[in-house]
Design a protein around this nucleic acid. Structure first.
Lengths: 304, 304
DNA sequence: GCATTGTCTTGAGAATCGTTCATGCTAATG
DNA sequence: CATTAGCATGAACGATTCTCAAGACAATGC
């Protein structure tokens, strides 16, 4: 008997293009999906997709099911949202802070979407703080902090949102531009541009340069991504940024990107929340919306 | 995680009004449903329906889910139909005969519905046979026979459709009219009206009178249900018919009905088909449509 | 030409989940 | 106050559905 599980799998498969990544998205093993889809195909009596192509291509039957899934799953999600609201019809507050400078890109659509569905929850990003955002969490001055480096704090829970890769942006004429990846040593003579935050909060250092004992020739800071890009494009330095923060500049061929090391530097972005708020319907829904929006808006990220 | 199974259960529950009967409809036990619904309610954090009323009443959350189910399940069924057609795009023939005289009531809507979805399958009820319908099945002169008494024949499979209760229709002024049920003996002095078919094919005899060794004073036949009703209403006899064949006359208070014996006489209606045609997509779909239509159109029947 | 990598398949075992069965509880009915 | 019908519950079972480990296959690189 057809179940929603199958439809969710098919959507993941279409979005991902391969069983391996689809499995990640639905939080199952690749093998599980293989079995699941094989079962389904046997029961239906016809194959659903062509496995030998990349991305996979759906047969007519597969297309029909994907179509069904696209009809049905949004309806299911809407119902679930309504139910969550019916279950806990409590007032809520969701004040948040962002430690990650380039998060507005997906956070804004998330907030818009969320506001539509939870009018009774007050969503805001209060400005002008003088304190550490994470410390404001247990003090109930904030309810959610987006951060890439979780620090153990009593009563604070870190909910992984997605994983992203740190890339090195270099000018199009830079000698490193053609390489598949760079070694830490090759940054020893470069000017590295970073956001003006502590050294310890920059993955380039903690995960890449520090372990190799390398220090760039010079480090300078810039507040905004666009400023960094201008500096990089004009050859006045290189800078490390999340892959998704770079996509628009890469598409316009403004700068080039190379991986940090052979395997790349991967980080996880977290939503830090108070333990008590972890199970509230609106928090559950916000996190889900956040994840969905990120995957829809950002390219090259992976499930946590 | 919400699954279609849950939605199917809820629809069954709404249609049935009680867990016990809902369980029958989805071919599960009452306990299974109790567990399933309890789980669901726990995960959603709110009850879905009030169990202490008859029929059960849904909470707001329950209503919302029923609404979802009504949106989604028809879409799923349509998709399944399309898939079945995509899987086996073979031509088919579906010629049938009805042994059960009052089956047109649900068979006609079933055929209409089926024709819309399977234009390539030729559906017909050929008339003017001189042979036994069941014998025509293996000879491929017919493809499906609706019957209430399955006889073992090589290559013939009997697919149960639904169970119904045989009731005794009596005039409104008949002494038996007030009783909850009648004993076989009380028919000894009655005129029994039947369809003009063999004695052995009438449940009143095989399941009720014969075992008790009772013979009615007189047996006369009538071709059509409406004629029988006229005879019964005017006090010229009593007749045994399926409950659903009587509902329209009962509603108009034209005749009264009483059960045959303390526990009633229950029969099962079957679709007799050839083994080879049993798995073909259109046969599977026809049987499903037949069952769905029967339950929608007829009252007082139960799943086989 | 042969290792390497990434992807999908397969089969067996394991875990999980749902179902069954037996029983107990509650409310309505006579 | 017995009786019946409907629902809940818990233990044991059973069947899906997953994970794990191994293998096939194709594309890619040395």
């Amino acid at each position: 008997m057809l179940e929603l599980r199958h439809l969710r799998t098919l959507i993941a498969l279409r979005d991902a293009g391969s069983l391996v990544e689809a499995a990640e998205r639905v939080h199952l093993t690749q093998s599980a999906l293989s079995h699941q889809l094989k079962d389904l195909e046997e029961r239906l009596g016809s194959p659903l997709f062509e496995r030998k192509t990349r991305p996979v291509t759906f047969t007519r039957a597969g297309q029909r099911l994907v179509e069904l899934a696209e009809q049905v799953l949004p309806q299911v999600r809407m119902a679930e949202r309504d139910l969550a609201r019916l279950a806990g019809n409590e007032q809520g507050r969701l004040h948040m802070a962002i430690e990650c400078h380039s998060c507005f890109q997906w956070l804004m659509p998330t907030m818009d979407h969320f506001r539509d569905h939870w009018p009774e929850v007050e969503v805001d990003i209060p400005g002008g703080h003088h304190f550490e955002p994470l410390d404001a969490l247990p003090r109930e001055q904030l309810d959610l902090v987006i951060t890439a480096d979780p620090q153990p704090l009593p009563g604070v829970h870190y909910e992984p949102l997605f994983r992203y890769q740190g890339l090195l942006a270099v000018s199009r004429h830079h000698p490193l531009a053609g390489q598949p990846f760079v070694s830490p040593a090759s940054l020893a003579e470069e000017t590295l541009i970073t956001y003006p935050v502590e050294h310890a909060r920059l993955d380039v250092f903690t995960q890449f340069l520090d372990p190799a004992g390398v220090t760039p020739r010079e480090v300078r800071t810039a507040e905004l991504t666009i400023m960094m890009m201008q500096l990089v494009a004009s050859g006045r330095g290189v800078c490390a940024l999340p892959n998704w923060a770079l996509t628009e500049y890469l598409e316009r061929d403004y700068v080039k990107a190379v991986a940090l090391g052979e395997h790349g530097v991967w980080s996880t972005l977290f939503a830090a929340i108070r333990e008590e708020t972890r199970e509230t319907p609106w928090m559950v829904d916000f996190l889900r919306t956040a994840r969905e929006t990120s995957f829809a808006v950002l390219e090259g990220i992976k499930p946590a």
